[in-house]
């Protein structure tokens, strides 16, 4: 396959598609700009974080509102029904803490956590 046909892989099944496509120049590009669903399309956003959400598992009523509201999909719904923050991609926006109906998520300063 020539370089210029690299983009035709996107037509393949989900499993056979490449995870990331890289193009060097305009000739290699697909006809239109597209995004394929992959983890962290624009990088590891976890290092943007200055405040970290801490879920108090004891007070959590497992409603899942944090999971729904998280703009980055960084809240993981675990098999036992509890929720956990994926710190690789959590950028610390605080929306989960704001939306939590039981006020059970605390935003803690990253520097404080490292000092502990």
């Amino acid at each position: 396959m020539s370089n210029t046909e690299k983009w035709k892989d996107i037509n393949k099944s989900r499993e056979k598609r490449p995870k990331v496509q890289e193009y060097k120049n305009w000739k290699e590009l697909p006809p239109i700009p597209i995004s394929l669903p992959i983890d962290g399309a624009i990088g590891i956003t976890g290092d943007w974080r200055t405040f970290r959400p801490i879920i108090d598992q004891d007070g959590c009523n497992k409603c899942g509102i944090c999971w729904m509201y998280c703009p980055e999909g960084s809240i993981i719904n675990k098999e036992d029904g509890t929720f956990e923050v994926d710190l690789t991609y959590c950028k610390g926006c605080g929306i989960c803490a704001k939306e939590c109906p039981t006020n059970n998520i605390e935003m803690k300063r990253e520097s404080d956590i490292t000092h502990e």
């Binding site: 996107i10 037509n11 099944s13 989900r14 700009p33 597209i34 995004s35 394929l36 669903p37």
Partner: peptide, 9 residues
């Protein structure tokens, strides 16, 4: 849906 993609980005 089996091969999701986003366009018009």
């Amino acid at each position: 849906p089996e091969r999701p993609m986003m366009f018009g980005n």
